[in-house]
Design a protein around this nucleic acid. Sequence first.
DNA 1: TAGACGTAGA
DNA 2: TCTACGTCTA
Lengths: 167, 167
Amino acid sequence: LKWMDPEKIAGSVCGVQIGDKFKFRSQLMMVGLHSQPHSGIDYANIEGQNVAISVVDARRYSNESGSSDTLIYSGHGGSGLYGSNVPPEDQKLIRGNMAMKNSMDKKFPVRVMRKVVGFGKDVYVYDGLYIVEKCTQGKSEEGKIVFKFHLKRLPGQPSLHSMMMKW
Amino acid sequence: LKWMDPEKIAGSVCGVQIGDKFKFRSQLMMVGLHSQPHSGIDYANIEGQNVAISVVDARRYSNESGSSDTLIYSGHGGSGLYGSNVPPEDQKLIRGNMAMKNSMDKKFPVRVMRKVVGFGKDVYVYDGLYIVEKCTQGKSEEGKIVFKFHLKRLPGQPSLHSMMMKW
DNA sequence: TAGACGTAGA
DNA sequence: TCTACGTCTA
C-alpha cells in the first residue's frame, strides 16, 4: 500500500469494522486492509524492521483455529499449499515468515482476515487485531519444517460472531 | 461472462466506445469485454461451436501489428510467453486456438483490446472489431510451431488513433 | 482440476 | 526478476 501514509498502514483501518465482508482480494487492497494480491502475509518496514501488519487466512494452508480468539497461521514457502506440485522443502525464516517473527518480538498488532465459506458464496471477513504470541515449528506430511504462528485476538473487540449475525 | 445474455456476448458492447481505456483486466470483465482474468483469448459456444469473441494483446507474445488495422496475434500454449521457463512445445489447435480458427471459418467478429504502454502508465484500450482473415504457422526461436492469426479491422469504425487523441 | 497475454511489492 | 493463502472458464 505504497499510496498510504506509512504511519497509518498498521492497526485498524478507518472505516472498516469487524465483520465487514469482501468478495475479492483486490477489495482488501483498495480499502487498505492488505496490499498483496496473492500473498497471505503483508508486511512493512517500520522503524527499520520488517513487521507483519496483516494476514489473510484463505484456508489454503493447514491453519488451525482452536477457539474464536486464536489462530494458528502457517508460514509460507516450502510448497506448503494444498495441491502444490513443487517438491517440498523446509520453510525458511525469510520474507513474511521473518516479518511475523518480528511482529511477535515487538508485540505488534496484526490485522486478520478470514475467508468464510459456505454462506452461499465465499467472502473475506475482517476479524480484527491479533498479537503473535509464539512461533513453533511443525512438520508437514512430507516431514518438512513448517512454521506455526500462534495468534491471539486482542481483547476489547466485538466478537466476529456477533458482528456476522448482523448480516 | 456467464451472467450475460448468451446472445449478446459477441460483437460490440453497449456503452463501450473505441478508445475507452481500462487499468485492470478485471475491469474488462466487469464491462463485458473479456471474461478471462489471464487468458488472452476468450470464446464461447455459439451454435454448437466454440468461437473466439475477444482477444487481449498484452504484448507478452511476439505479436505484430503491420498497420493500424491489422494485427497478427500469436496462439497460446507451447510456452510461447516471453520469460517462460517451461520447456517449449508445438502449439496445439485446441481451446482458444481452435476457437480462433472457428471464428475465421465463420467470419465471426472478434473484439480487440490492446495494452498500450508509455503513456505514463499502462492501459488496456478497446480497439474495435476485427475479422480473422487467415491462420498461418510460424516457428518460435526454439523451432516450435506457433500459430499466427491474421486479424483485419472491420471498416466503418472510427480509428483508434483519432479516439485516443481525445484523451 | 488445470490452464491462462494478471498484479503488487520485495 | 521472482514470489505469492488469486480468479475465472473449460
